[in-house]
């Protein structure tokens, strides 16, 4: 069967790719997608632990996280739309209202 360390390693790799996207990309939409990627990686680790321990806690937590991610996406995308409407851009480094 699949060793625990491989499940966790895959989740860690996915998390790091998402983190790199959040740090490096400037397009707010892609930053949001990278955040979803990180949440997804955390879910994978939780489900892996649930499987290892034969315990449903991890799966229940992952279920709650899916709902949380949907709420986060709704609010985040609303903010992106709002920023685009007033600034005409979706690039994080072009939103410099507070700098002036």
């Amino acid at each position: 069967m699949v060793p625990t360390s491989q499940v966790l390693g895959l989740a860690a790799l996915l998390f790091c790719i998402g983190l790199a996207g959040v740090i490096v990309r400037r397009n707010l939409l892609i930053v949001m997608m990278s955040v979803e990627l990180m949440l997804n990686a955390a879910n994978l680790a939780l489900v892996g632990f649930a499987r290892v321990r034969g315990d449903l806690e991890g799966q229940g937590l992952a279920f709650l996280i899916v709902a949380l991610a949907a709420a986060e996406a709704a609010v985040g995308l609303a903010i992106v739309v709002s920023v685009f409407r007033s600034r005409r851009t979706v690039y994080a480094d072009e939103v410099t209202l507070l700098r002036r």
Binding site: P3, T4, V7, L8, L13, C16, I23
Partner: peptide
Amino acid sequence: GLAAVGVLGHQLLRVCLTVGDGTSVGA
């Protein structure tokens, strides 16, 4: 930023690959 991600990822992978030593999801 990428270097920071690299360092974090390295440590994270090291922890992840050692924490589940021996156990597998086949129980």
